[in-house]
Simulated scan of single mutants.
Amino acid sequence: MRHAKKAATNWIQSDHQAVTKGQHDGHEGQSSRAGRIACTAHVATYTATQAAVLYAGSRVLGLRLKPGRVAAALALSAGTHWWADRRMHLKADPGELHLMQGRSWTSGPELREVYRLAA
């Protein structure tokens, strides 16, 4: 699924979608409507790519996935991806997010909590 996400975001997403999906009326020369349309188009191809890879993988591995659960998971993935790509909901400055990526999470209580919740 991780490779499906990369393919959908890096290869299938059009340049127009990538540039436009985060636009908002609050920024000069931008349009919220154009941003919503581009983001929705991107998320549709993103979700279709994930569905195709999931279907192919389940067939190859002989998995019997429940269609309702697959649809729910894809809908959740699509909704959160759309929400994040619209960018207006994220209050942190992109520069701050970049600094957070450099933080080491290899030790400390945060990582231990992640391991505890995953177990």
Rank of each mutant, 00 (worst) to 15 (best):
M1Y: 08
R2P: 08
R2T: 04
H3S: 07
H3M: 08
K6M: 12
A7I: 15
A8F: 03
T9K: 11
N10T: 05
N10G: 09
Q13T: 15
Q13M: 15
S14M: 04
D15Q: 15
Q17W: 13
Q17H: 11
Q17A: 14
A18N: 06
V19Y: 03
K21L: 09
K21S: 02
K21F: 02
G22C: 06
Q23Y: 08
H24C: 05
G26E: 12
G26M: 09
G26C: 11
G26L: 08
H27D: 07
E28D: 15
G29I: 09
G29Q: 04
Q30T: 07
S31D: 11
S31N: 10
S31L: 04
R33G: 00
A34P: 03
G35T: 01
R36T: 09
I37K: 11
A38R: 01
T40E: 13
T45P: 00
Y46W: 07
T47R: 02
A48Y: 04
T49M: 13
T49Q: 10
Q50K: 10
Q50G: 02
Q50E: 11
A51D: 03
A52P: 01
V53M: 10
V53H: 09
V53R: 05
S58D: 06
R59C: 10
R59L: 08
V60D: 12
V60H: 14
L61M: 14
G62Q: 08
G62I: 01
L63K: 12
L63H: 07
R64H: 13
R64V: 06
R64T: 13
L65C: 12
L65N: 05
K66E: 15
K66T: 02
P67F: 04
G68S: 14
G68T: 00
R69H: 11
A72I: 00
A72V: 02
A73T: 09
A75I: 09
L76F: 09
G79E: 08
G79Y: 02
G79V: 04
T80Q: 03
T80F: 11
T80K: 03
T80E: 14
W83I: 01
A84M: 13
A84F: 12
D85M: 03
D85T: 00
D85V: 00
R86L: 05
R87L: 09
H89F: 12
H89V: 00
L90Q: 06
K91T: 11
K91Y: 10
A92H: 09
G95S: 12
E96K: 09
E96L: 05
Q101Y: 06
G102Y: 01
G102A: 11
R103K: 14
R103H: 09
S104Y: 14
S107T: 14
P109V: 10
E110A: 13
E110C: 08
E110V: 12
E110R: 08
R112D: 15
R112I: 00
R112W: 13
R112Y: 06
V114M: 12
Y115P: 01
L117T: 15
A119V: 12
A119P: 00
A119K: 07
